[in-house]
Every structure is written in structure tokens, then in C-alpha cells.
């Protein structure tokens, strides 16, 4: 089933936001839709999006490469993205990332053995007063978790594991 058929209501809602002759603007929200539903954006999805808004597959691919929230390869179902920029790092973000990865037995950028969690260091997320913090990118969109500790994070991951098994 095509993207437009599978998510008809959402695609229609996205296209309605922009002037009819400016359909290309819809490419970003359509990429978000695919990223959220599939966990990454593959070549087939790029072709579909390109056809929907009237641009080439290359035009779409260059956006996937340019913007950090679109991923062209699968990873963990949930991407746990830890801010390690200057203000967060002044409040222990680097140590937080290192300890979290140690607790999970992975390197930064790596994925847990069950395929649920990928931990990635990222740039500033506009939450500098509540470090250490991270966002979780997954099928439900993006959610912030602030003033975190490694223990609290491991609890959150356990809860997500239970949820995933259901």
C-alpha cells in the first residue's frame, strides 16, 4: 500500500497547510511521518514522497542527509539522544553519557542487543537549565526527559522494555 493510501488523513492534512502551488513545503512533514512510522526513511519512501510533492528522489535524499532527525538506516526502535553541548556539559552531560553507555554495555552511537535503544550524543536541545537531559525519538514522535540521572534513565528503559514486550 502506498504512503498516501496508508496514511491518507495525515497526508491530506499536511498538504493542506501550504499553498497548492507550493507542495514542496510538505516534504519535511512527510519525511517526519515516514521517520516516525518506519523508524527510518528508505529509498522507496523517498520515491513516494518525491512523487507526492513533485520533486526528484535526489531532492528528497539530500534533505535526509542534511537534517539530523531523519535517518536513512534503521537503528534501535527508540533513539535516546543525549545533549552534550557546552551548557549541558558544564552540568555533567559527558559523564552522564559515558555512564549510561557503560550501564547499557554499548558505545555512544551503539544499539542494545534487544534492538530497542540506540544512544546518540546530539547538539543543543534548548533545555540547558535541566541537564543532564535527552530526547527520545521513536514511533510516538519526540519526548524530552530532563534533570535525569543514570538510575532514572535505566528505570525508564526498563519500562520501555516491558511496554515493547506486550
Amino acid at each position: 500500500m502506498s504512503l498516501a493510501e496508508k496514511h491518507a488523513a495525515e497526508v491530506k492534512k499536511i498538504l493542506a497547510k501550504y499553498p497548492p502551488e507550493q507542495k514542496q513545503s510538505a516534504v519535511m512533514p512527510l519525511l517526519h511521518l515516514v521517520q516516525r512510522k518506519n523508524g527510518h526513511v528508505d529509498r522507496h519512501a523517498m520515491q513516494e514522497i518525491a512523487a507526492l510533492v513533485g520533486i526528484t528522489e535526489t531532492d528528497v535524499a539530500e534533505l535526509v542527509g542534511f537534517y539530523t532527525l531523519y535517518h536513512d538506516a534503521p537503528a534501535g526502535k527508540l533513539r535516546l539522544q543525549v545533549c552534550v553541548d557546552l551548557p549541558c556539559a558544564l552540568r555533567g552531560a559527558d559523564q552522564f553519557l559515558a555512564q549510561l553507555c557503560e550501564s547499557l554495555g554499548i558505545e555512544p552511537g551503539g544499539t542494545t542487543a534487544d534492538g530497542l535503544i540506540t544512544v546518540e550524543p546530539v547538539m543543543c536541545l534548548a533545555a540547558c537549565d535541566r541537564a543532564p537531559m535527552f530526547q527520545v525519538q521513536g514511533p510516538d514522535g519526540i519526548a524530552y526527559h530532563e534533570n535525569m540521572t543514570v538510575d532514572k534513565t535505566m528505570e525508564l528503559i526498563e519500562a520501555k522494555r516491558k511496554e515493547a514486550k506486550k
Binding site: K17, Q22, Q24, S25, A26, V27, M28, P29, L31, H32, V53, I55, D59, E62, L63, F66, Y67, T68, L69, Y70, V122, M123, C124
Partner: peptide, 24 residues
């Protein structure tokens, strides 16, 4: 309208490019 992770899009003309569905 949501961007997708690019500091440069805070620059107003890059923002407009991005809003038009292009690289910021």
C-alpha cells in the same frame, strides 16, 4: 511547521529555504 534538526535554520533566509522544502 517543524524543522528537522539544523541550527542554521535559525538564520532567517536558511529558515525560509527549509520552509520551502529545501536544505536549510
Amino acid at each position: 511547521h517543524l524543522g528537522a534538526g539544523a541550527y542554521i535554520c535559525g538564520e532567517e533566509t536558511a529558515l525560509l529555504e527549509s520552509l520551502e522544502g529545501k536544505r536549510g
